[in-house]
Design a binder for these strands. Sequence first.
DNA 1: CATCAGGGCCCTG
DNA 2: CAGGGCCCTGAT
Length: 323
Amino acid sequence: MKAIKLVNKTKIFLNPQPPYNFNANFHKPSHFPSSDNRWEENQYWITMLWKGRMLGLKFENKGRVDKPKIQLTVYSKKKLGEKYFLGILPEIRWRFNFDQDISSFCGKYKNDEFLKEAIKKWEGMKPIAAHSLYGTLIIYFVLQNAAVRRSVQMLENLFNKFGKKVEFDGKALSIFWEPKDMAKASEANLRELKVGYRAKFFKRLSEQFTNKEIDEFALRKKNKEEVEKEILNIFGVGPASAEYLLFEDMYFLDALKTVPPWEQKIMSKLLFDQKLVSTQKIVNFFKKRYGGYEKLAFHYIWENLFWKRKKVHIGWLEKEIRL
DNA sequence: CATCAGGGCCCTG
DNA sequence: CAGGGCCCTGAT
């Protein structure tokens, strides 16, 4: 596939709400890699489809956790009008969670036995959506019932068939497709991409977005219970995907009701030094100790572990990660 | 070689 | 509310 060159640049400085941890927010080491984005220390690139135009975003860290400053460069094929450019900024602030204030969490738990190390290293880490709701749901679907390698393969197959490649700042990255492009495809076409039973999910999801049955922006204004109810109505979204979505993409810091099996094993070891503790006990631990921030606390412990894994070999952990 | 359980979800009874 | 079926893959 030939890459489309995005040569026009528009730059701006942005100031997220402190504390904001650039590297811990633009890179989540527990997530599987996707060819639509790339992280390097203090730099991040991602593609974005916005109002019919393909964009390349580059973020550069020019500040500190307590005084965050980010230089954003938006790459496009043609020069961007001022109105269009100003219009994407609120969306970018949302997708990278610039405005949520978690200072009280970091302050309150900086000496907590289970969190102090993570807060010391990653203060200002927050949930980050990074993608549109549509893109996020596609990613959650490939995550279901699959080990990492297969999830990666499914997503790349989808990018190759429905997406495009764009090139900017020396990087060639995939870019998501419009829902209508996928809605047109047949279920058999989708199945060729080795996505299995998910083919039906992709098709129905794309149709729902094309028909504007799902309104991401209206959803963001609703409370947790309303959001949960609505997303559970989406074909292909069940309790597991819904819970990830509530935290990672809708930023409800207390969205913790269940723990998937592999996370259960890892948390059992980390918190209780036992082989397997009931999910209920794990959930209760977080609720009691970090009420209101139970999922954020989980996130700090979780990502801290995966940051460590990048540097040192953790034998017991490797066994629990299905690559 | 076969069987099975996954980083679930839908549908049926 | 329990349980079968579903795509694929790697483990046994």
